[in-house]
Structure formats: structure tokens, C-alpha cells
């Protein structure tokens, strides 16, 4: 079943009408030639989509970013990379199914691909824990990044998680330590790391694979220190104040570009990535190719240096030196 978001309703209604008209014109000759009419309606739909998607607020973007039909890591892997082999486990007793990773080819270049996986069908969602990783997922990611470093293979990370899993076992196994260690070690990996937020960038669980030389973000994805729901319930004392919270958090791609947290916005096909998987994947592929090419000019030392500089500067807009 297709999930329709509140602000997409009118678009869908019109699309359905067009669909009906077309099938009617096929069934009854008496309808006559309505190609012109249908063409006009198609144009109207395009305009509507354009208008609606150009004006999405933070909360609406959050809904698009979480859309169950939005392409996930494994979808992109299927479209963009060849000869993919998944690699499992953190080698410390953990499997970490909310994060997938493995080797594959990007054109003729071997790459390590790592990303959160949310799952689409109920059973997969449960298996993937809705993309909320246990410490094992982050430890696996780090293991794979070090493997990539050893063989001088560039790393491509895809972020799509509501956040790190808040559970008893996660705490017992050191959720904080796992995330902290990734931040601490990823910064010094001396092969190119390109990070792309493909859907939801949820706090520490996102950042745990987010320390890249380049951080890209899809047009309708979000990246935030806390979910709008969490923020609303803590600061407003009302978990329904999500619209205000999402607005205040400035979690959309243009805001983050302005704050210097991301480097580039990847456009999505009109109507969002969830309607056009393949076309979205092509756009991601183009962006990855360009960035990989740029980074391939840097030496291992320069890559590490560039990453350190990039993260050292973050937050400069947030403070000033007073008296």
C-alpha cells in the first residue's frame, strides 16, 4: 500500500483522476480525443508538486525523510554498486543488523559501503530494529572502515537512522563508548570518506558514521541533534508541538548548508525520492563520482588533515569572544 502524506493528498487525488480519465478514454470511443486535456492536467500536477515540495517545512521534510517507501541503503547499493559482498559482525560478539556494510565496485573502483538499514516489511523492520543500532552496528562500521583503510579503499557512508537504540542491552554493551570510539577513530582514517544523509540523520547514532571529508545531504532528508518529537516533549512539555520543534531545530538541508555542517545538497526528483528510486540513485551516483574524484587528489595525510580542519571549525558561528 502506498503511504500518502498529508500534504500530498491533493496531488494524489489529481493523479488518480488523470489515471481514471486515461483508462476511460481507452475503454469508450465516445470520450473522443482528450490527449490535450490530459496533457494539461499532467502539467497541473507537476506545478502542484513543484509548489508543495518547494515549500515543505521542517516537520513535513521529516515526514518525507521517514517515508517508508524512501530508498534505503540496500536499495542504493543495488542501483549504484556492482559485485557487492556484505560483511558481517563486529568481531566482539555482536552482529549489528541495523547497519549494513560491505565491499563493492563503483565503476572500476573498489569501495567500502556502510549505511543504516531501516527495513521495509514488518519482519525486516524488526530485524533491523527500525534502523536504531546497537553498539555492535557502530563497532562493525568501524571495523569495516579500518579494513578499507588497510587496502586503501574509499569509504561511502549512508546515514538513515532515527538514532542509536535506547535499550537496556545497548547500555550494557556500551552504546556511548561505541559512538565515542567511532568519532575518535574515524577522524584519522586516511582514505576518502564521503557521507550522505539519505533519510533521517538522528543524533549520535547518525554522527557515529558521519565524520567524513565530505558530508552530502539529500534535498528532503533531515539531520538533527534530537528528533522533533523528543525536542517538543522536553522543551515544550508537549509532544504534539513537533512543527514548532522541527522549525526551531533547523534540521533541513538548506539550513545545515548555511551553518556549514554539510557541503552539498543533492536534489531529489520532483515529488521526493520515495516516488522515484532509480532516478534518485542516479543523482546520488553523480554526486559520489564527483566527490570521489575531488578527494582522490588528496594524499592520505591531506585527507586526515582536511577532516580535522573541517570538524575543528564547526560551531564557529555559535560563539564569540566577549570581554
Amino acid at each position: 500500500m502506498v503511504q500518502i502524506l498529508e500534504f500530498e493528498r491533493e496531488i494524489f487525488a489529481l493523479e488518480n483522476q488523470i489515471h481514471e480519465l486515461v483508462s476511460m478514454s481507452h475503454m469508450y470511443d465516445s470520450v473522443g480525443d482528450i490527449t490535450h486535456e490530459i496533457g494539461k492536467l499532467h502539467k497541473k500536477v507537476r506545478h502542484m508538486k513543484h509548489d508543495v515540495y518547494a515549500k515543505l517545512n521542517g516537520w513535513q521534510k521529516t515526514q518525507v525523510a521517514r517515508h517508508p517507501d524512501r530508498p534505503h541503503t540496500l536499495d542504493y547499493i543495488g542501483y549504484i554498486f556492482t559485485d557487492f559482498i556484505e560483511l558481517h559482525g563486529d568481531r566482539h560478539g555482536g552482529y549489528g543488523p541495523s547497519v549494513v556494510g560491505g565491499l563493492g565496485k563503483f565503476g572500476d573502483q573498489s569501495v567500502m559501503i556502510i549505511g543504516h538499514q531501516k527495513g521495509r516489511e514488518t519482519q525486516e523492520k524488526i530485524h533491523r530494529n527500525f534502523g536504531m543500532s546497537q553498539p555492535a552496528g557502530y563497532r562493525k562500521a568501524l571495523r569495516l572502515m579500518k579494513l578499507a583503510q588497510k587496502f586503501r579503499i574509499p569509504i561511502i557512508n549512508l546515514i538513515d537512522t532515527p538514532g542509536a537504540y535506547p535499550g537496556i542491552d545497548a547500555e550494557e554493551k556500551g552504546q556511548s563508548e561505541a559512538i565515542a570510539t567511532n568519532l575518535f577513530q574515524m577522524i584519522d582514517i586516511d582514505v576518502p570518506i564521503i557521507v550522505t544523509v539519505i533519510g533521517e540523520g538522528g543524533s549520535g547514532g547518525a554522527l557515529a558514521i558521519g565524520v567524513g571529508n565530505r558530508v552530502l545531504m539529500f534535498e528532503h532528508s533531515v539531520y538533527s541533534v534530537i528528533s522533533p518529537e523528543g525536542c517538543a516533549s522536553i522543551l515544550w512539555g508537549d509532544k504534539d508541538k513537533v512543527v514548532q520543534a522541527a522549525e526551531a531545530l533547523q534540521l533541513t538541508a538548506p539550513s545545515l548548508l548555511k551553518l556549514g555542517v554539510i557541503d552539498e545538497i543533492i536534489r531529489e526528483p520532483l515529488g521526493g525520492a520515495h516516488r522515484h528510486h532509480k532516478r534518485t540513485a542516479i543523482l546520488l551516483k553523480k554526486a559520489l563520482r564527483k566527490n570521489l574524484h575531488d578527494l582522490s587528489r588528496l594524499s592520505p595525510d591531506e585527507l586526515v588533515h582536511q577532516r580535522h580542519e573541517k570538524f575543528r571549525k564547526l560551531g564557529e558561528v555559535g560563539f564569540e569572544v566577549g570581554a
Partner: peptide, 19 residues
């Protein structure tokens, strides 16, 4: 929370310095 994503980035910044 009031400094949004910039607060999150301080985690990476401080950890990088520690390395």
C-alpha cells in the same frame, strides 16, 4: 538542544582533538 546540529558537531570536534 537549543544549538541544534551545532551541538551535535561538538561531539566530533572534541573527540577529534582527543585523537
Amino acid at each position: 538542544m537549543q544549538e541544534g546540529i551545532l551541538s551535535l558537531m561538538q561531539m566530533a570536534k572534541t573527540s577529534a582533538a582527543l585523537s
